[in-house]
Write a protein that binds this DNA or RNA. Structure first.
Length: 966
DNA sequence: GAGTTTGAAACT
DNA sequence: CAGTTTCAAACTC
């Protein structure tokens, strides 16, 4: 009887689900759902409907499946991959899944919600009716199915979940669902681990109580006399799962007097009903739960005798939480074995695979508390991991083009939400995993998994795609996105969960929103997942900050396509650790990223230049005799900071954050930078001026120090003193010179530094080459030397490479620094992506090099660079400087520090002086570059600092000495 | 974990 | 170009 009825019920449930799905679609009005339904649902539905093997088919059928199939790696991976990912996710799945599942369950929950809204009464009545039916049917073993049908009718969503009798009922009633979930959980737990069960049990006392009670009852029934004679264990389970209600009914009817007896026994048991009830209430934060509970309670109440029975059930359930669980599990186990494999299995199985998980998920989602309880820390971690895994996979797939279908299907997925979606998938994954782990049935699960992955991928990819397509449009419509995300996730989940999930997923979509509302407290699993988990990760990771180079961003609105994003600014793609939302800074969106970069560069060619530049020279200044430099390193912030309140003593200050001292370029107020005060820097400059004052003066003349540093320095010409002679030489060897220059100039900021270094560095006389080239002044030589010292470009590059996390392919970022091998610097360098090839930035001047970042343009080979650069072209030099390793190697020289570093970003036309100089020396320099000067405070070009310096430092003296020597 | 502060980036 | 707004990180509670 039961088996046949169960089949019928299943069929009914499937039909109901389909209808429900359609209804949901219509209701939702989201084309997405419709799309999904058409494309995917069939498979999912089928799977759901057809208990057994649907899983695989659905995947294939769905576009997603195609997509997945297209992705060979994924395919392979899918099973394993997904499984793993899910597995990883699995742990978390509880959380995720639950929400999703809950959403799935939600249908019920939704219905429940409706009930809450006012349909509760209906529900109760309905339940009562159902119960009555069940009473009769229970005997037959059909009760559950009937209920499902009823529930399905009323609640579109619910039934799907309940496809199989027991499951259906669980699903149908939120409470039941919860209970079912708990039961499943328990079962799964039994299969998987007791811990989960306990957590679930603890979390869902209500549902558990009910379910457990039922189960227990059932068990008792079975034990007692197997009230349902002839009923298979599965049927029994179904009855049990169906709810205490049915049991109650039975009790009332006396059909299951044995049960009643048992109930009485339970009552007699130590269980405190009141406490249970309290728990129940507590547990019932969610409307659904409450509704269920209420409904159950009401129903029970309606049934005079039932109440006690119910209470007993509750108590029993509680007991079950502890003692009962085991027996129940054992029972469930056995039953599961039979049922799962049988009819129940369908739902469960299909679910099955997903089922346990799905249920767990459902429970979680439905019952926030339950979810929370269920989600153990480990699980949460698992979720995170799963999430990570997903992200990883997505990345790995980055290149993969999502099928447009998928994209089309999920147009909205992109954007922040996409990110959200990802997690959900993970959730799915979890389900799958759990399924896989728990139940061998994996096949279906795998299929669903595949779908889920595909969906995820599509979502992500779509996001990317969309983002790409949309290009720069800002992500918006958060609300929609959310829903979409939910849908997506739900879809994925559904895929995972299979047929049931399909229906449920749609419902879930519907319900998710509600649930989220409900569960907002819990934190929407999805959202939480998306955000919180990332945050957590982020925090964890953030500490590490990738080891060094990479910071993890947490962008929410910029999509990681603006300089606000550290990753984007650093010319690297966002990575897993990032907790950014709607991130487009991914390989998938390389085109988009490039465009944006170009745009930004167009506005500020140096936008992507390393912020921290090491002076060519390590600067004598800092470490050298003078000792004036406090900064640990000679490095300085290219643009300088603009701190007003932090006094450059907090990480708000970019200089401080980079562990570099403030420089002239800084506009900070009250600078107390421990790494070097601006004043000190000025002093050094002064020294420089004095030592090389001539040059400086020529360069600086009009500009404030900063400007001076930035622009002038950048300009080789400015450096000029050298220029004339230098030029001559330069002309002869543009390339060489350019190289040299480039080196020096490397980073604009550096340029400043370089200049300083020049002035300061007097001491090191190193480079023979440099000597050759130029340098008129010994200083220059020194500078060069120092520069050479500090930098071995190659070293730098290597370091940078090492540190590269995810260098943008083309990113030309220059690692200037080379300076010594300081870890910090390295890190800095790592941040900047060096162009491995040339190491140089290409572009002339500020302009191009950016493009490279993304695109591998770097083409500029050194040669090109050199050529392009022409010593004359200051801009190129500036930019290139950094890059040119060869230069460093080879010539020493240089002198032209051009730089680029435009200080705050404002562009400055090349200083006239420079032009003059440059013109004389080499016109090109001037033309090319844009000088970005921050507003230089009104420093008299050098003077103020110089003045301050007066006291000054040995460095100056040294310089003077050097000069004198020369 | 949420809210505030800070300063860079972006916008007008 | 200056001023304002937006943004994300850093910081505080």
């Amino acid at each position: 009887m039961t088996s046949s009825t169960g089949n019928k019920e299943r069929a009914m449930a499937a039909a109901m689900r389909n209808e429900a799905v359609e209804q949901l679609v219509s209701l939702s009005g989201s084309w997405f759902l419709a799309e999904w339904r058409h494309d995917c649902r069939p498979a999912g539905l089928q799977s759901s409907t057809s208990i057994t093997t649907t899983s695989s088919s659905p995947v294939q059928e769905s576009p997603f499946s195609n997509y997945i199939s297209s992705l060979s790696p994924i395919k392979h991976d899918k099973a394993p991959h997904v499984a793993q990912g899910f597995l990883g996710l699995n742990s978390p799945p509880l959380v995720f899944t639950s929400p999703r599942i809950s959403t799935l369950g939600r249908p019920q929950s939704s219905s429940v919600e409706v009930h809450q809204n006012g349909q509760v009464d209906k529900k109760r009545t309905h339940e009562s009716c159902i119960l009555e039916r069940s009473v009769t049917e229970l005997q037959e073993g059909l009760v559950i199915d009937i209920k499902k049908e009823d529930d399905n009718k009323e609640n579109v969503s619910v039934q799907p979940s309940s496809s199989s009798g027991c499951v259906d009922e669980y699903l149908a009633d939120p409470v039941e669902a919860d209970c079912a979930n708990s039961a499943y959980v328990v079962n799964s737990n039994l299969k998987q681990s007791n811990n989960v069960l306990q957590s679930s049990v603890n979390g869902f006392t209500d549902s558990k109580n009910i379910k457990v009670g039922n189960k227990n009852i059932v068990g008792k029934e079975v034990e007692a006399a197997q009230l349902l004679s002839g009923q298979s264990e599965g049927s029994i389970e179904r009855k049990l799962t169906s709810d205490g209600k049915s049991l109650m009914i039975e009790n009332e009817q006396g059909a299951a007097q044995g049960l009643s007896d048992e109930f009485q026994k339970f009552e007699s048991d130590t269980f405190d009903i009141s406490s249970k009830e309290k728990e129940f209430e507590n547990l019932g934060p969610q409307k659904v739960v409450e509704d269920h509970v209420d409904g159950c309670n009401d129903f029970l109440q309606q049934l005079p005798g039932s109440l006690q029975g119910v209470q007993s059930y509750k108590d029993f359930a509680e007991n079950v939480g502890g003692d009962v669980d085991v027996p129940v599990h054992s029972m469930a186990h056995d039953l599961e074995a039979s049922e799962l494999q049988r009819g129940m299995s369908r739902r469960c199985l299909q679910f099955g695979e997903a089922q346990p998980q799905a249920r767990a998920n459902c429970t979680v989602s439905t019952n926030p508390a339950a979810s929370t309880s269920l989600a153990t820390a480990s699980e949460a971690e698992g979720l995170d991991s799963s999430h990570l895994d997903l992200s990883v996979t997505s990345r790995t797939k980055q290149s993969v083009n999502l099928p447009q279908l998928a994209i089309n299907m999920i147009p909205q997925c992109y954007g922040e939400k996409s990110s959200l979606t990802v997690p959900k998938p993970s959730g799915i994954g979890l389900h799958l995993n759990s399924i896989v782990n728990a139940i061998p049935i994996a096949q279906v699960g795998s299929a669903s998994m595949k779908l889920a992955q595909a969906i995820k991928l599509t979502c992500q990819s779509t996001e990317n795609m969309d983002s790409c397509s949309d290009a720069f449009e800002k992500v918006s419509a958060p609300p929609q996105d959310v829903t979409l995300e939910v849908k997506v996730s739900t879809v994925a989940d559904s895929a995972v969960s299979e047929s049931l999930s399909a229906m449920e997923s749609t419902e879930c979509d519907m319900t998710l929103n509600k649930q989220r509302k409900f569960s907002s407290e819990d934190g929407n699993s999805d959202e939480v997942f998306d955000q919180q988990s990332p945050k957590k990760k982020r925090k964890k990771l953030s500490n590490s900050t990738d080891g060094e180079g990479c910071k993890r961003c947490n962008c929410k609105k910029t999509k990681c396509l603006k300089l606000y994003c550290d990753c984007f600014a650093a010319g690297i793609y966002c990575t897993e650790p990032c907790s950014c939302q709607g991130c487009f800074n991914r390989p998938e969106c390389a085109d988009m990223v490039l465009e944006i970069r170009k745009q930004i560069e167009s506005r500020n060619p140096l936008a992507f230049a390393p912020k921290i530049v090491q002076p060519f020279t390590e600067f004598p200044l800092s470490n050298r005799e003078d000792g004036n430099w406090k900064t640990p390193s000679s490095a300085r912030h290219k643009r300088g900071c603009n701190c007003k309140r932090s006094m450059c003593l907090k990480k708000y200050c970019e200089c401080y954050q980079a562990n570099v001292g403030c420089s002239i370029g800084c506009r900070c107020e009250g600078c107390k930078n421990v790494y070097g005060k601006k004043e000190d820097y000025c002093v050094t400059e002064e020294m420089f001026n004095r030592s090389g004052g001539e040059r400086l003066e020529s360069r600086v003349t009009a500009k404030p120090k900063k400007d001076f540093l930035h622009s002038e320095l950048c300009d080789p010409h400015h450096l000029t003193p050298l220029t004339p002679s230098f030029q001559s030489s330069v002309n002869g060897n543009k390339a060489s010179i350019s190289r040299l220059l480039s080196r020096r100039c490397l980073p604009s900021p550096e340029s400043d530094l370089t200049i300083l270094s020049h002035s300061k560095s007097p001491r090191s006389p190193r480079t023979s080459d440099s000597n050759d080239m130029c340098l008129d002044t010994s200083k220059e030589k020194l500078d060069i030397e120092s520069y050479c010292e500090g930098i071995s470009y190659n070293n730098v590059v290597a370091l940078a490479d090492e540190f590269h996390q995810t260098p943008l392919p083309n990113h030309p970022s220059i690692a200037i620094g080379s300076s010594s091998s300081k870890a910090r610097e390295l890190t800095n360098l790592s941040r900047f992506q060096l162009d491995p090839r040339s190491g140089s930035l290409t572009s002339g001047g500020s302009l191009h090099w950016h493009s490279p970042p993304i695109t591998p343009m770097s083409p500029l080979d050194e040669n090109k660079n050199l050529q392009g650069l022409d010593p004359a072209d200051g801009g190129l030099f500036d930019i290139l400087e950094d890059d040119m390793p060869e230069i460093l190697k080879g010539t020493s020289m240089a002198i032209m520090p051009v730089k680029a570093g435009s200080p705050n970003g404002k562009r400055v036309s090349p200083p006239h002086n420079l032009h003059q100089l440059g013109s004389s020396s080499s016109g090109p320099l001037r033309s090319g570059r844009k000088f970005i000067l921050k507003a230089v405070p009104s420093f008299p070009p050098l003077t103020p600092c110089i003045d301050s310096k007066s006291s000054s430092t040995q460095g100056r003296n040294d310089l003077q000495e050097n000069r004198s020597n020369e």
